[in-house]
Write a protein that binds this DNA or RNA. Structure first.
Lengths: 257, 257
DNA sequence: GCGGACCGTTCCGCTCAGTGGAACGCATTC
DNA sequence: GAATGCGTTCCACTGAGCGGAACGGTCCGC
């Protein structure tokens, strides 16, 4: 595979435009034309045309009045992003419960869903002092987080297999990195109805997570309480998280989600 | 203007794709093919092709396994939306301050920026009991909200004029609806350094707002405390909001935003 | 001051990606 | 069983998109 070529050679205009938009990420929020051309592997003039049109459509923005220019994702994106059903419907139902849980535990509360073999954080409460490196919209391998493990534990076997096939990258020395270990862990999670994550995703950070089910009784999300290892006591937090997750599941069932 | 035609006839593929994506809104989170064709004014087969490709690019999603199908905005959108600089950089800096303010006042905290002549909510804390109809990513005319007025008060005159030219729609009987009234209000806001909103955006809801400035000393955002009218006391809340806004401005200045 | 590197922008003839009317199969509804 | 509305597929036509090349600007180090 060439360095300039992505895995599939981008052909149609739409796929090229998408590639341009995907060039922006956490560590590259602002990109110049040349950067974009490099990162997408597209000719400069092509990128220029696409990016310019995206600006005129208000999808991308350019601080024309300012000094240093460069393209960036526009407000348009943020507004649409907030309308995404998995986020909105879930968050609307979850926020009250999450706030109660935050109040009761004074720790950081996470709500996440499964997307493919990864966990995506949909809502986070309590950005507080210590900076835990979780971000709304952030993505982590499912096997390495509390919410991820609880999501896998109640997902079809095919999903778990997909995660194993995609690899079990080690985030910390305590990350579960073997298929057998994962299977055993998931069985244990199902038997107790919650998951523990003792520094498996980040050193010094632990969490307790519980499953949230939708109206169809299928797993929909994972809810967790996260904090620095010393302050996370599974014995007291476990019941709190499980209760909140049950409440949320009931709310979802009541509104048919 | 025809009913099927938007103001500018959409021509290029990109603008058509954008039109398809913009067909989704707060009250239409899920749309079928025919709906999309109707709302965009494009031929059915064209929409089908575009939407299908957007699905294969993971921009749109379709619950293939479920019963009722229809297109919806995908997680892809949510993830990108969270990366939008105006949202991310501001939120990162603001959340700690907002949480303190929330803790101190026990009311709902809003952070909003100006986009054109509208206010867009970038971050909201405290979704609590009473449902105030504000939504992250939501958009309201600037003259009719506390944060909006404070943003206008410190914006260039051209911005205020643009708002007046776009009209001053009445949201409640107390909304400021005349250019003169607005000018007077903005002058008053500048003199006291904060804005009051007494049921101007929603009946029964009031708020106190203060300006947040960036490293360039230009207005960047508005910060507000909002609640049911009875529980909002400007005398006590005013200093709290202004203090928080000052703190946030200083944080932004320190990190050069 | 000058050559070179790198940036964003513009031009323009070639061609294939995108177009959309029409026809299809399938549920619902009357 | 005719009518309506849905999503899907087909295919001959054509202009929207393509991108190499050339241009003008700024910022270096020599």
């Amino acid at each position: 595979m060439r360095s300039t070529e992505r895995n599939g050679p981008p052909v149609s205009l739409l796929s090229r435009a998408t590639a341009v938009l995907e060039a922006f990420d956490d560590s590259h929020p602002v990109l110049g034309l040349a950067d974009l051309a490099r990162r997408t592997g597209l000719p400069k003039s092509t990128v220029h045309r696409i990016a310019s049109e995206l600006v005129s459509l208000r999808v991308l923005e350019r601080p024309d009045d300012a000094t240093v220019d460069g393209y960036r994702l526009g407000m348009w994106f943020f507004e649409r992003g907030e309308l995404v059903p998995v986020h909105r419907s879930l968050s609307d139902a979850a926020l009250p419960v999450m706030e109660d849980l935050r109040e009761a535990t004074r720790q950081r509360i996470h709500l996440a869903v499964l997307d493919g073999v990864d966990v995506v954080y949909v809502e986070i409460l309590g950005t507080g002092r210590h900076d835990i490196a979780s971000r709304t919209g952030g993505r982590l391998p499912a096997h390495a987080t509390g919410v991820g493990k609880v999501l896998l534990a109640y997902s079809p076997a095919a999903t778990v297999r997909a995660r194993v096939d995609a690899g079990l990258p080690r985030m910390t020395p305590r990350t579960i990195a073997t298929p057998g270990g994962l299977t055993r862990e998931l069985r244990k999670i199902r038997s107790v109805g919650m998951a523990l994550d003792l520094e498996e995703s980040h050193l010094g950070i632990s969490c307790v997570a519980a499953p949230v089910f939708g109206a169809d009784h299928k797993i929909r999300a994972g809810l967790s309480v996260t904090g620095v290892t010393g302050s996370i006591d599974p014995v007291t937090l476990g019941p709190a998280v499980r209760t909140a997750a049950f409440t949320l599941s009931r709310t979802l069932r009541a509104s048919g989600l």
